[in-house]
């Protein structure tokens, strides 16, 4: 196999990777997983007793997986325009997510100290908070871009 063939093979597999999408049916699966995890979060918070911190962590991950499945699933009619809109939504979600991660800790710190003196100490956002926010923004922006196309 010469260098050209190797390059072509690599290009093909890379394109396959970046064009990867789940079928439309996975949207329902993603919604079900995300909804169930939110319901279970409420159940854990208000109806369960004992040490359930592990469940909270697990449910957070499951919620993110559900939203990721929603984000990766194709539309009923997937065409070049939906691909372009999805790319735009990911770009916007990434930029907004970075700004959120940079600004939000200061906002939280400022508000906390303004409301009661000697409030919370400054702390960075957790991975869950940032990822949830980015996925939410991506899904919302994509939905809105499709509505106004």
């Amino acid at each position: 196999m010469d260098a050209k063939k190797i390059l072509e093979c690599e290009r093909k597999s890379f394109n396959k990777f970046i064009n990867f999408r789940l079928s439309h049916q996975f949207m329902a699966v993603g919604i079900a997983i995300a909804s169930l995890s939110i319901i279970m979060m409420f159940v854990r918070a208000f109806a369960m007793e004992g040490e359930t911190e592990w469940l909270k962590l697990l449910l957070k991950k499951v919620l993110l997986v559900g939203m990721l499945i929603m984000s990766l699933s194709k539309d009923k009619v997937e065409d070049e325009m939906t691909v372009s809109l999805r790319a735009q939504s990911y770009a916007i979600a990434f930029i907004v997510g970075v700004i959120y991660a940079l600004v939000m800790p200061y906002v939280e710190f400022g508000v906390s100290n303004a409301v009661h003196s000697g409030g919370e100490a400054f702390k960075d956002l957790g991975d869950f908070q940032i990822l949830l926010f980015m996925l939410m923004i991506q899904l919302m922006i994509y939905h809105n871009l499709k509505r106004y196309r």
Partner: peptide, 10 residues
Amino acid sequence: IGVSRQTINS
């Protein structure tokens, strides 16, 4: 042509 109606509209 294998696209959605909304794409034609746009």
